[in-house]
């Protein structure tokens, strides 16, 4: 059964390393749902978080192939581990009018979303949370008319 997995790849900070990792996944026929790469507290180390949808055997292959990259330091599939804090970040712009603006504000309050910009015909807000929470607010905002949104993809840290 295919399931979404968040995989954290710690790599040596060499030029081209992100291209190597994403190229490898594409070359082996895996689809990346999201990928984030960012520096860490150690300037020599980069952390790449990818979300892929695969069955158990596929995930096993992916982690093995990722481990094989010479620049890779460590690969962790955190999907079934509960000692990780996993978050995603969202910025979303929703159409509003005088009638429904307060409904959207109410929703924002429930989700603890923060307004970034408000105009007569839209609200732009930000929200960090679990992937489930992010997906839920997008679903609930949809009827108002979403102009644009951007999701960071998942990133994580062990407790």
């Amino acid at each position: 059964m295919k399931e979404k997995h968040t995989i954290i790849i710690k790599v040596t900070n060499h030029p081209g390393v992100l291209a190597k990792i994403s190229g490898l996944l594409a070359q082996r026929g895996y689809n990346i749902e999201s990928a984030i790469a960012a520096p860490t507290e150690n300037p020599d180390v980069y952390k790449i978080s990818v979300v892929v949808e695969e069955d158990d055997r596929g995930i096993q292959q992916i982690t093995k192939q990722l481990n094989k990259v010479v620049d890779t330091i460590k690969v962790t599939d955190i999907s079934h581990k509960n000692n990780y804090v996993v978050r995603e970040y969202l910025i979303i712009k929703v159409k509003v009018n005088n009638e429904n603006r307060s409904d959207v504000f109410e929703l924002m309050q429930v989700f603890s979303a923060k307004a970034l910009d408000v105009d007569s015909d839209y609200i732009m807000m930000e929200l960090a949370g679990t992937q489930r929470k992010i997906s839920r607010i997008i679903k609930l905002l949809k009827p108002y008319g979403i102009e644009e949104y951007v999701r960071s993809g998942e990133f994580a840290m062990s407790e």
Binding site: P15, G16, A19, K20, G23, L24, Q27, V70, D71
Partner: peptide, 16 residues
């Protein structure tokens, strides 16, 4: 060449 050789090599380098 760094990009071209990535997927067909065990490892590769560009000396900057």
């Amino acid at each position: 060449f760094f990009g071209l050789s990535t997927s067909i090599c065990k490892h590769n380098y560009l000396v900057k």
